[in-house]
Nucleic acid binder design. Structure first.
Lengths: 230, 230
DNA sequence: GCAAAAGTGTTCTAGTTACACCCATGC
DNA sequence: GCATGGGTGTAACTAGAACACTTTTGC
């Protein structure tokens, strides 16, 4: 069956930049190896065509699930890329999203159009298909810009984390060293972290306290005019 | 002639939220009155379908020109809206842009699909077609958020302006009063305004000095790590 | 001379930065 | 007992906030 229109139309896809942190709090990006043409065998961002009966965000959620097995994560629209020749097949406009996930919670599984799915260090990326390098650049910039003014970093950590883990996350993404005491004073003064009275286990040094981010408290404070800032 | 595809495709449009300032430094938004169905006669954002041989931004520029006569302005992508039923005709995804213009430079002229084009106060808007109310809300929020951290306010003013005009612009968009002396000290300390040694004319009170924004200087400072902030 | 907006510094307060040592645990 | 990261407070500095009167012009 064919679909016929009075005017020519571009195709519309979604692509997802998935960020994660490894054990050493280094920034990682999830890529899939394309199993189909064009760019077969090349690494690319997970994504695919939008269906007519789903919203754009729903398409992003679905593609992420289909190609990597990831579900229920922080997902936000990034930017829409639509240069005329960004895809060799056809005129394709892509709406890019970025996702933040806690790597430990998932085992990544390649599925459908993806031959393979793997985490890459944000510093050592392979050659990417299409204009995905550019999309990734915009995503990194957005993450860096947003991290300081919105409490989104917690999405990259396990629900229970230490202050040092949190600090390293900030240092990694912002690409700058932070002072330990100042960082701790600042973040604790916000009253957004709850001390869950548990200790880190299995480390060969003094164990650290574990904290949780209090999302509800943040929403309350936000409504009262509070501005998160690191 | 018809265009036939193997899979169904959504249509893709661009819409533009055009901001301007009136003589009293109040925020205005440019709307067109639709000359064609659906929502014929209703007010809406200027916009239209993307052609296959133009980038998204080029489409936004073209539509703006076609429907309102506006050309060569600050234009930046806002967000992409793609709820399944946002358009009664068909599945239509729209990529929204926002533009900042100096009202005095243009005489607005309705053309092509627009029956009429008019400036509306941002506070007293008519009922809008489609989900344009929502798009406008996102645009206002973006403008408000961005104004403090990027020197984009100057796009709304004539090239030569007084410090009071600039301050009123900030007060209007940010919806808060600012202290005159603090505002002046802050903005002048940045060294981004050049005193062009001209005076305001035709006012029945002490005339103010005129300034110009130094874009090149801003780019230099930005590269050196300077962050604009009001 | 009066109305209307332009122009101009200082003090106080709050927030940010810089900085070094002892503590608890595993091996 | 030693290596490793955890945890803690204060002083100096800087940036932001509050605040009122004189000046210049047109009518």
């Amino acid at each position: 069956m064919n679909y016929s229109y009075k005017y020519p139309k571009p195709s519309v896809t979604v692509d997802c930049v998935v960020f994660g942190l490894d054990d050493a709090q280094k920034l990682k990006i999830l890529l899939i190896q394309r199993g189909i043409s064009p760019y077969e065998g090349k690494w690319a961002l997970p994504g695919g065509f939008i269906k007519l009966d789903e919203s754009i965000e729903a398409a992003a959620v679905r593609e992420l699930k289909e190609e990597t097995g990831i579900d229920r994560v922080f997902l936000e629209q990034l930017y829409t890329f639509g240069e005329v020749n960004r895809d060799p097949r056809d005129r394709i406009i892509t709406i890019a999203y970025y996702a933040l996930i806690n790597i430990g919670e998932y085992t990544i599984q390649a599925r459908t159009d993806a031959r393979n799915a793997e985490w890459f260090s944000a510093k050592e990326l392979p050659d990417l298909a299409f204009d995905h390098q550019k999309i990734l650049g915009v995503a990194k910039q957005r993450l860096k810009g947003k991290l300081r003014y919105q409490p989104i970093g917690f999405e990259l950590l396990p629900t229970k984390f230490t202050l040092t883990q949190l600090q390293k996350l900030y240092e990694t993404v912002l690409e700058q060293k932070l002072d330990k005491r100042n960082f701790r004073n600042k973040i604790l003064k916000m009253k957004l972290l709850v001390d869950i009275e548990e200790m880190q286990a299995g480390v060969s040094h003094r164990p650290a306290k574990l904290y949780q981010f209090d999302k509800n408290r943040y929403k309350e404070l936000e409504q009262a005019g509070f501005n998160f800032e690191i």
